[in-house]
């Protein structure tokens, strides 16, 4: 009895949640994902392997020893999903698994999470060595858009 109630409640919550996710997805379908970096980073272009190493928190410095600071949106943000899949060719759950493994074994750190693309641009612009990504919001002069060689 208790078990069936739990299952029913869980299924109900799932239905509501799944609908919400679909809406988010539909709303997010605008533009192409751009990788942005703070103006002081030496990089003007990058490669997919380099981005994968940076966002997997394995590559901690730019050429010239400037520390890398990585900004991401939440796991469930449509721009994060688009960035993971189209640029890195990874699923968001794989990225979270990688970060959790680093954080809870003491062998690495997680990226900094921001709440919106606007905050992403502000943080990347004002943090030395910062890197992030945007899709809905346009990049202004405060950040560099990195050209990605595929």
């Amino acid at each position: 009895m208790v078990r069936s109630i739990i299952v029913l409640v869980a299924l109900g919550l799932f239905a509501v949640n799944a609908t919400a996710e679909t809406h988010n997805k539909a709303r997010g379908e605008v533009g192409e994902v751009k990788v942005i970096a703070s103006p002081d980073t030496p990089a003007r272009e990058t490669t997919v392997p380099q981005l994968r190493a940076i966002f997997a928190m394995r590559l901690h410095k730019w050429a010239g020893n400037l520390p890398v600071t990585v900004y991401v949106l939440s796991d469930y943000h449509p721009t994060h999903a688009a960035f993971s899949k189209t640029i890195l060719n990874l699923f968001p759950y794989q990225m979270r698994r990688t970060w959790n493994r680093l954080v809870f074994s003491g062998t690495g750190q997680a990226p900094e999470e921001v709440l919106s693309e606007e905050e992403m641009v502000r943080k990347v612009a004002s943090t030395p060595g910062a890197i992030g990504y945007i899709r809905r919001v346009k990049a202004d002069d405060s950040v560099h858009v990195l050209k990605i060689h595929r």
Binding site: H60, P67, V103, G106, T107, G108, Q109
Partner: peptide, 14 residues
């Protein structure tokens, strides 16, 4: 847990 990276090559964590 707490972790720090005093330099890009060094991490301290507990």
């Amino acid at each position: 847990n707490i972790s720090a990276r005093p330099s890009p090559d060094l991490q301290l964590a507990a």
